[in-house]
Design a protein around this nucleic acid. Structure first.
Lengths: 204, 204, 204, 204
DNA sequence: TATGAATGAGATTTCATTCAT
DNA sequence: AATGAATGAAATCTCATTCAT
């Protein structure tokens, strides 16, 4: 961290420092978006958190939206991975445990990346590229859930909409809980979500 | 306060025009928020839609937030009314039909007031009074659902969280659908929601 | 005050009511200027104090400045009268008593009209008509003082500047005292002013 | 906080430019207030005089009032210094010369900072912090004069009020003269003030 | 690479004045 | 004679982005 090491003449640690600065900005962005939301976050908030300057910010990101997109892409990867990890749904107790475990992963991911997920589904930025990225990721995620629901859905249930409804529930409940609007233990939330989803597919 | 001028018979001009203008601004606000979201909406958008002037806007509302709050209060009333209209949940086909009908009402309300509901639960304006109003209304709404769920919940289900999860699902699915991010018929959505909720409580 | 007396068909008390309204506005203006100063006073403040409407205001005065000018003209008259009432200055005890009495009148006038006097000497409105009116009145007033000073001034004293200095002292001390910036009894102020002025002309 | 970049030898660019801009704004403010008065001065006038942009202005001052306050604080310092430089008052010719010299300093200060002094004693901005600062400085200034007057005041003279009256005369006469409302040479003004003040204390 | 000063377009807000009734 | 709603020009203020060093 001692900056005095890279003395004038020598470039020193080729681009390691740049990567570090970029990372600091990404982290700061995550924090800032979490605290105030995408729109209310100022570039100033980000650079202050990152302990850099405005000039530096624009060295790494073309604008605020690009910072957000970079963050969003990290989340997109994580969500895609998570989606593929959902195994077949089964009525058995074992199936239910598997479901519960997956839901726990979803909640953990939301815990890490909630603000980003939240922001990209906002209508406010729905018109632009980032909104589209968000929609795509969510659509992708929902498609996987859909496939699993379809395998077991009773004939009177529209698997497409049901999958969407379940994803909606997962996302929004996490939002309520993480934004502190309600006071619920994460564990109890995971239990209940598993119970409700399992129940709605296979009965109580 | 009865002025001698507005005698019965004469059109009651006194306050009528003002109220009309206020209404126009409120409606315009609803439209604008729906179209561009709370943050992206400019006071200018609102007055253009309402076909008035900037000055007039500030005659009726101190700022954009106050306009939003006024709108939010209308929604709060509507939601409170809707909440009380939820009857007991029952496993019977009749009970399910009643539930479906209530859900249809919820979706209709969301159709009318969606953008406001959406905006007030966003973290961006969560720090202020409006955010609190939103939280309060949603809490109130959830409480009513909670009471009904509690009456019939199987012992292995936490009625409080379940009620929250169901409200989350209702709200977020409507959001997905109304924001055009996915393409689903309202009727099918209502069916599925009724099916999922009923199923999760009483089995398939 | 019962407005219902002037029934539609009859004009009733020809223009008495108008004069009353005008007076109310003038008084309200005086109060408002006193409380917040000329610039910070809004037409709205005036009409609220006068319990009338904006429309009515502009029925009687072309604008805020005209209201001020009307007020200023009242003061101008009073000051001109006061100026002529200053008798010859004399070293005797009797002369000093006469001076004291005149100063008491000046302070009383300042008590009544202070805010107007204050406002018109402000540089802020010095460029316009009102400022000129103020300057004229003050010049006139000073001229009278000048004549009396000249009659008795020792040769080493420039009567013109001395007169100006005395008027300045009279005006500003009253301002300090009336604006509440310092806490001094009016009587003591009058005594001291008489003493200082008399002393500066005739010795202690 | 010592950054490795600004090593001794390199021009100390870091803060210098900013300070210069701030200074330019301060000076421009002084000019603008002098020319149009506090209320009539627009932020726009200031930035035009300083040859900067609106944005830059708000980088250094939160608003017009803050700029004024900064200016006022400079004046406050100068006035406090001036106050302490007043020596004992003496009836002798030498004492009178000393008094005259001090008055000359006061008038010079008023020449430099007149508009600020003028503005802060106005009722218009008297309700806020700046007004208080002005009152404090003037009170402080008066207190020093008071001490000197008290040392020599004849028993029939209230030294407190007399000091106030003298300060009032100094301030207001300068105002009349500098605002161009009357046409008086500064030298003659200083002479007359010295004569009047000396005379009022020690006789002609 | 990094900085912090500067910018200016655009948003918000105020308020003297006019207008329809 | 009186009202209160409406107006819009002008002022204030914000902030993403660029620039000089």
């Amino acid at each position: 961290m001692d900056r005095c090491l890279d003395r004038p003449g020598r470039p020193a640690t080729p681009r390691a420092r740049g990567q570090l600065t970029r990372r600091k900005l990404l982290d700061a962005g995550g924090q800032a978006f979490a605290a105030k939301g995408y729109h209310a976050t100022r570039v100033d908030d980000v650079v202050k958190l990152a302990r850099t300057s405005h000039g530096t910010f624009y060295l790494y990101f073309a604008n605020k939206e690009e910072l957000f997109r970079a963050l969003a892409e990290e989340v997109a990867t994580a969500m895609a991975d998570l989606a593929t990890s959902l195994g077949p749904l089964e009525p058995s107790a074992r199936g239910r445990a598997a479901l519960r475990s997956w839901i726990a992963d979803v909640c953990a991911l939301y815990d890490d990346y909630g603000p980003v997920i939240r922001a990209w589904t906002e209508a406010e930025i729905g018109g632009n590229e980032v909104g589209r990225l968000g929609t795509d990721v969510l659509t992708q995620f929902t498609r996987v859930v859909y496939r699993r629901v379809e395998e077991v859905a009773p004939p009177d249930l529209d698997a497409g909409i049901a999958a969407l409804a379940l994803v909606a529930m997962l996302e929004r409940l996490n939002y309520y809980v993480l934004s502190g609007q309600v006071d619920v233990a994460v564990d109890a939330m995971v239990d209940t979500l598993a119970r409700v989803i399992h129940g709605s597919l296979f009965g109580a």
